Computed example of a mutant assay.
Amino acid sequence: MSFSEQLFEKIKEYATSKEITWIESKASGSLQSLQTAFVATPRFISKTLIQSTETINDLSIKDWSLDRLVRVYLLSQMDSSDKDSYTKALDTLFETAENNEAVALISALPFLAFPDYWMLRATDAVRSNIGLVFDAIAFQNPFPMQYFSELAWNQLVLKCIFNDKPIHRIQGLNERANQELAISISNLAHERWAAGRTIPAQAWRLVSKFMNEAIFKDICTLFVSQNQNDQIAATLVCNETDFSAAKEELEKHQELQNKTFSWSMLEV
């Protein structure tokens, strides 16, 4: 079963017969008619919430509205045999999109042909000041994990940390952890501490494999923090790292070392 067919099967679990009839009448249309249907979708499709925990092409659709799912399905039906016509039709939608349309377009990236072509649209979403648009690229979306450069990836993760967003919802978070990101997290922490502020404790999960003397000093700072979550993060990092000084430091904190912690305890 193709990804497009999987999308439609999920739609049928939530749509009324009248809605299904409308979708079927539009799904095989031309690029132009699918453009029109994409824009018109909320007039004919409800905002019923999708409660499925399944993923389609590694994309989570949980808590989407039905009209968002239908819009993504319609985009997946577009004929990509003529690249110029295909990309032009989608570019027109991107350029004229209101917020909900932009969310659907970003959500559809894993189903669009020519993924390299959409890189600028994806990185623009990372820079967006519209929360819903940013969340559509950042969370439960495999596109950044699969296609972003290290620089673009790091910008996405750091923006989440800076804005206290739940980084555990980023697909590929642990797999794409890297030295430059670990250093950037350390630098951000120093800026925040200097201003009397903190960073989310779970951000430290990304430094365990990249420990150095500077980051080790940060972990020592976390151990003496008045915030219990910082102490938990320090304990977890020391358990995960191969850095010998961190193992020695952990020995000094028996009250923490003997407890069972997990990063999920810090997910909010």
Score class of each variant (00 low, 15 high):
178 N>H: 12
203 A>I: 07
161 I>W: 04
224 V>T: 13
173 L>K: 05
173 L>Q: 05
160 C>I: 02
166 P>G: 02
183 I>S: 10
199 I>G: 02
147 Y>C: 03
175 E>R: 15
215 I>A: 05
192 R>S: 03
212 N>L: 11
141 N>S: 13
216 F>A: 08
157 V>S: 00
197 R>V: 03
178 N>L: 09
198 T>W: 09
164 D>V: 05
156 L>I: 02
213 E>H: 14
184 S>N: 14
163 N>Q: 08
204 W>L: 14
142 P>G: 10
186 S>Q: 04
197 R>P: 02
208 S>K: 06
153 W>L: 02
137 I>E: 02
139 F>H: 15
189 A>I: 01
199 I>F: 06
164 D>P: 03
217 K>H: 10
181 L>V: 09
181 L>D: 01
156 L>G: 00
147 Y>L: 05
184 S>C: 10
183 I>P: 01
222 L>C: 08
156 L>N: 00
183 I>T: 12
219 I>W: 04
165 K>E: 03
213 E>S: 15
164 D>C: 09
171 Q>V: 11
162 F>L: 11
163 N>E: 09
144 P>K: 04
214 A>R: 14
163 N>W: 09
216 F>Q: 01
188 L>R: 13
192 R>W: 00
220 C>R: 12
196 G>R: 02
150 E>V: 11
164 D>W: 05
189 A>S: 10
147 Y>H: 15
189 A>C: 07
184 S>K: 11
170 I>R: 02
159 K>A: 03
179 Q>T: 12
185 I>Q: 02
208 S>L: 05
139 F>C: 14
169 R>A: 13
198 T>V: 14
208 S>P: 08
188 L>Y: 06
221 T>L: 13
172 G>A: 07
202 Q>R: 15
142 P>S: 11
210 F>L: 08
190 H>Q: 05
223 F>M: 11
212 N>T: 13
187 N>D: 05
173 L>T: 04
207 V>M: 08
221 T>W: 12
176 R>C: 06
196 G>T: 07
170 I>L: 06
148 F>A: 01
155 Q>V: 02
203 A>G: 09
151 L>V: 12
162 F>D: 04
180 E>G: 11
168 H>Y: 08
171 Q>G: 04
215 I>C: 06
177 A>W: 09
152 A>S: 05
